[in-house]
């Protein structure tokens, strides 16, 4: 199932609607990496609220996604990881190193606002 990618100001929001296959995840990664350039986005939010399981492939793909978008000039934040999922991931050693996370969409937007503002003021 394709994940809809919405443009919201300077940010792209990918809101996952149902469990994703490995192929869907790769599509999501590639689609976002491409659209970041196309829309000149400064931030990406991936909302995983509906996922009740996160395997090693999914978390590795999300990590790659975050690193790819960063290289193309946009910060990625993963939002909406459920408490049970979070603890299961940590026990499996999938800690999404170097990837920013936030509680939900609202927090994610606030986080990106802060982070991108800091970038511009520094630059």
């Amino acid at each position: 199932m394709e994940v809809p990618i919405l443009k919201q100001g300077l940010y792209l929001i990918a809101s996952i609607q149902a469990a994703l296959s490995d192929v869907d995840l790769l599509h999501l990664r590639d689609g976002l990496a491409e659209k970041v350039g196309k829309f000149r986005a400064r931030g990406v939010i991936v909302d995983v609220t509906v996922l009740d399981v996160m395997d090693s492939f999914a978390s590795r793909t999300l990590r790659d996604l975050a690193h790819m978008t960063r290289l193309r000039g946009a910060e990625t934040v993963i939002v909406g990881i459920q408490p049970e999922v979070a603890f299961a991931m940590v026990q499996l050693g999938l800690t999404l190193e170097g990837v920013d996370t936030a509680l939900d969409l609202e927090e994610g937007l606030a986080f990106l606002d802060k982070k991108t503002k800091r970038h511009t003021s520094r630059g």
């Binding site: 993963i78 939002v79 990881i81 408490p83 979070a86 603890f87 991931m89 940590v90 026990q91 800690t95 999404l96 996370t101 936030a102 509680l103 927090e107 994610g108 986080f111």
Partner: peptide
Amino acid sequence: VQTVEASRLLGA
């Protein structure tokens, strides 16, 4: 340590 990491995944 795992609790700390899981909390980070929730954005805290």
